[in-house]
Amino acid sequence: MEVNSWVLWQFDVLILLMVVVCAVVALQLKDLVSSAITFGAYSFFMCILWTEMLAVDVAFTEAAVGAGVSTILFLGTALHVKRRAKD
């Protein structure tokens, strides 16, 4: 079976799985602060994925913006509203 031997596809699939898991967990957690932190982890896995897909500039931006600043913005909002979500 010849499946894209030109990228490390096992590595690729592993990271994609982690991305999907982080996305689902971030949406399902009841605690909004944990949800924000899990979303930071999601962004970080995205960053690894993009480095691996040769988009180094995009990965750099995502590492600084997605995993750094947007997590802080989510945290700032989560601490100002009721921390426990219904769903």
Partner: peptide, 10 residues
């Protein structure tokens, strides 16, 4: 890799 956007965010 880098530039104004990334440097600015850091």
């Amino acid at each position: 890799p880098g530039g104004g956007f990334q440097g600015g965010v850091i």
